[in-house]
Design a protein around this nucleic acid. Sequence first.
DNA 1: CGATGTTTGTTGTTGTCCGCAACATATGAC
DNA 2: GTCATATGTTGCGGACAACAACAAACATCG
Lengths: 363, 363
Amino acid sequence: MARPATEELRRRNRSALLDQLHRRGPQTRAELTEALGLNRSTIGALATDLSESGHIQETTGRSTGAAGRPSTLVECVPEAETVAAVEVRADRVRLALVGLGGTLLARAEVPLEPGADGPEAAELAARLLADTPAAETVAAVPGLVDAGVVAQSTELGWVDRDFRTDLERATGRSWRVADLATAAAVGERSRGDAHRSPNLLYLHGGRGVTAGMIADGRPRRGSSIMLGHVVVNPGGQKCRCGLHGCLEAEMGTFEQSATIEATTTAAWMGDTAAREVVHRSGGLLGRALGSVVTAATPDEVLFGGWLRELYLSSAAAVRSSLAEATLPQLRARLRLRTPALGSEGPLIGAAETGFEALIGEMR
Amino acid sequence: MARPATEELRRRNRSALLDQLHRRGPQTRAELTEALGLNRSTIGALATDLSESGHIQETTGRSTGAAGRPSTLVECVPEAETVAAVEVRADRVRLALVGLGGTLLARAEVPLEPGADGPEAAELAARLLADTPAAETVAAVPGLVDAGVVAQSTELGWVDRDFRTDLERATGRSWRVADLATAAAVGERSRGDAHRSPNLLYLHGGRGVTAGMIADGRPRRGSSIMLGHVVVNPGGQKCRCGLHGCLEAEMGTFEQSATIEATTTAAWMGDTAAREVVHRSGGLLGRALGSVVTAATPDEVLFGGWLRELYLSSAAAVRSSLAEATLPQLRARLRLRTPALGSEGPLIGAAETGFEALIGEMR
DNA sequence: CGATGTTTGTTGTTGTCCGCAACATATGAC
DNA sequence: GTCATATGTTGCGGACAACAACAAACATCG
C-alpha cells in the first residue's frame, strides 16, 4: 500500500458520500450524517473536498418548516463524472450519456444491419461516442458474456466474440462489457422500483431470450443466464444452437408470428389461434422459468422486452406451468412483475455499472 | 458509529490478519507483511495485540537457509476461538468442534430416529454440544434453508420448520442454520482443493438431492438449490413433493435400490440390470444438472454424497445428457469432479461459515 | 573465525484522520 | 424580541499506520 492507510480512510468516506448522493439523490448534510454514521464535522470536511473537486454543489438554507437552523442541501454535479452506456441489439446500437446522480445528458441511436459482426458494431459505437467526455464506457450485449467476450448471443449470432477488444480497437479507450439482462436487472434495482429485492431475476425477450440475476444484492458477474436455451422439451425441436427442445426452439411459432404485439393484441381481441399460441408460449416460458427459479431462487422476477407483452397476455399460463415446475416453498415468496423502466432498463443499468466502478475506484 | 473510525481501522486490520492465518495456515511475519500490504511495524503491533489476546502464538527464529534474520513464525491458537458445527441428517446428528485455523478438536455422533421433527433433532444437538465452549454454533441441514427456517427438506421431511428457534430453545444459545450443500461447497473451497473456482456448484446426494452454490467467490446466502425437484420429465412420475417428473421421483428406482453402493458395485461387476439403472440415473442427473448449470453458470461441479458413486459409475451418461441440455460455451469451462473432503465437507464448511462470521464480527 | 551483506523485528517520530466539545448561525415558537 | 432547537464550523485530542533509523539474527566469503 503506497498511500498511508489513513488517507485511504478519507478516500473511502469520500467515495461513500458520493455513492450515497449518486444513488439516493440530493440530501441535506444532516441526512448524510445520519446515513453514513459519521460526525457532522467529518461530513463537512468531506463536502468541502468534493465541492472543491467539483463533484458536488451545496445550496444553502432551504427552510423545512421545522425548528432549528436549516441544513445545507447537497447534490451531485452531473457533468462532474459521466458514463457512456451503449446497448447493442440485433437491429440498432443505442447510446446514453449519463451524468453523476443518474441524469441523462444525451442520447443517440443508429440502425445496425442484421448479421453485423463485432467490429462493425464496435465501429457504430465509436461513431455514436464520438468525443463525448465519458470517464467510463460500458456496453450491454444480449447473451452470455464473460470477461469482455461474448461467448454466445442468439440475438446477434455471435460466438466467442471478443467484443471488448473490438470496442477498444474502434474507440481507443477502455470498455466494460455487460450482459444486457444483468444490466437491466441492475437498472431496475437502482433506478426502478425493485429496491427491496436482494434476489432479482430479469428476463429479457429480444431476438433471443436471456436472463440476468442479482443475487444477495449484487449482480452476478461473469455470465448471464441463457434462458432461451433451457431445455423444456427433451428431444424436441432442433434449435439453432444445436440442442433439442430449447425454449427458443419450442417457442418458435410465437417468435416468428408477424410481430409479438400483433399476436398478443389478436389474442386480447379473441382470436382463438393467437390465444392458443400465446397460451402455449406462456406455458413454455413458465416451465423454463421453473428450472431457473429452482436453481437461482429469486424473490422477484421481471419480464422485460417482449416477454412483458407475453407475460401480460398469458400470466395465468405462466403461473400454472411455473407451479408445475417449482416447489411451493420457492413460489411462495416469488413476485412476478414487469419492469418499471421499460426498454430503458439496460442502458440505465449499464451506466449504473459504470458508476459503481467509477465511484469504487475513487477509494 | 460509536467507535472512533481510527480504532475501526485497527480492528479491520487485526481481523484481516487473523483471517489470513486462519485460512492460509501458519505464516511468517514477513509473509504476512507481504500478504496484507501493511508495514512491518504495523504487523508487529497487530501481532502483539493478537498475542496478548491469546489468539496467536509466535515461535521465533526458524532458520530458512536464506540470508538475513529469520522471520518469526505466527500461527493461530486453536483453542482461542472455537466453532461447533452440527450436521443433521435423516439418520444421525454429528458434531465437530473446530478450533481457529481449522483444527478439529472434538467429534461426536448420535443416531437420529427416522422421521424426527425439529425439536427432537435440536435436543440431540444440545446433548452433543453439552458444555463445549464454542463461540459460534452452526447447523447444516439438507434442504431449502432461509433465515434459519427449513422451508423444505426432502431428507428430513420438514416443511417450513423454524429450526433455528428449535435449536435456540434446546440449547439456550444463538445459532446459524446453513444448507448442507452450500456448507459443503464452502468447505471444499476453503479446506478442499477447489480454491480456484469462484463459481462452484456442490451436488449433494442424501435421502434427497440438493445443491449449493458459491457465486463470485461467496456462498449464496439464503437458500440452496433443490436439485432433486428440478423437473426432468414434465408430466412424469408423481413426486412426494407434489410435482410431477422431479429428478428424485424419476430416479426412484435407483434410490430405492437396496444400497447405492450395491447397485454401483453390481454395475461395475457387469450386472446388466444394475448397469441399466445406473446409466439411466446418470442420464437424469445430467439433465437436471443441465438446467442448473444454465441458470447458475458454475466453473466447477462437485458430486457429493452418494452422487459421487453415481457419477463415478456413470460419468459418460452424465456428461452426454448434460451435453444435450447446456450450450457448448457453458460446458467448455466446466469441470466435473468429486469432492476432496468426502463426507466431512458439510461439517468443515459449516464450521468455516461460523469462523467467517466470528472473524468478521471482530472488525 | 571474523567481517560483510541481507533480511527482519523494534522503537520513536510524523502526518492524517476522525470524534468531540464549544461556539456560531439560522430558523420556529411564544 | 427572546428562547429553544437544529445545524455548520473550529480547535483540540486520541489513535493509527507509515517511515526511518537502529538492533538483531542469519548466510557467505575469505
